[in-house]
Amino acid sequence: MDKSGEAYWKATLGLLTKILVVWFLVSFGAGILFADMLNGIHLGGYPLGFWFAQQGSIYIFVALIFIYAKKMGEIDRKFDVHEE
């Protein structure tokens, strides 16, 4: 892989890491490991840990994929590897 190819892949992996950290924190973190602690806080009638496990993590997953798709598009264009 040439120089710019390597830089492109590095940028891609950087983005993936950031997204996966959030993915992990909302589901395994807030939804499971820290759920008990967060249940002390309420979001309307929802205890917060319960909300992350049954609602919040799903909404954030959706947002994460669209953010990923958008940022990847930017990286593609920056390194001039986009389609068309």
């Binding site: 993936l16 997204i19 589901s27 319960f50 049954q54 993590s57 799903i58 994460l64 994929i65 990923y68």
Partner: peptide
Amino acid sequence: GGLFLMGWTGGYVLLALL
């Protein structure tokens, strides 16, 4: 039961990214 909700949706993040 949240494990089904998170498990069966969180997989799409992995699918999209990886």
